Amino acid sequence: MFEKFFSKQRDKKENILPHNIRGRNIHSNVIPTVCNLRNMLEKLVKVKGDCSKLKQWEQRSYKAYRIEDINSKIVCSPKSHWKSIIRNHILDRKLSDFGASCIDIYLVGYVSETYGVGKSKFLDYVKENKISDKDNSGKAIWQVGKADGVYLGILNEDGTIKDWDFIKEWVQIN
Results as ranks from 00 to 15, higher is better:
N36R: 05
E157S: 10
G109Y: 09
K162W: 14
N71I: 11
R22M: 04
S61A: 08
V75F: 08
S72W: 07
H89T: 09
L37C: 08
C51F: 13
N174I: 05
S77E: 06
Q143V: 00
R60W: 10
S72E: 15
S84C: 02
T160Q: 03
I70H: 07
E128M: 14
L54Y: 00
S80V: 14
I131N: 09
T33V: 15
E58Q: 14
K79H: 15
G149V: 07
S96G: 00
V47R: 02
C35M: 14
C35F: 04
D163A: 05
K48S: 12
S52Y: 02
Y62V: 03
K79L: 15
R24E: 07
M40I: 12
F166Y: 15
Y125E: 10
K4Y: 09
H19V: 13
D124S: 09
I173K: 14
K13D: 10
A100D: 11
N88T: 12
K8E: 13
K134R: 13
M1A: 05
L41I: 15
K48D: 14
T33Y: 07
K121E: 15
R10W: 00
V144D: 03
H89Q: 06
W170D: 01
D11Y: 00
G153V: 10
A64E: 13
R60L: 11
E42S: 05
Y125D: 12
V111C: 10
V75H: 07
E113I: 02
Y65N: 08
D11S: 08
K8L: 08
S77A: 14
S132P: 07
P18I: 15
E68T: 01
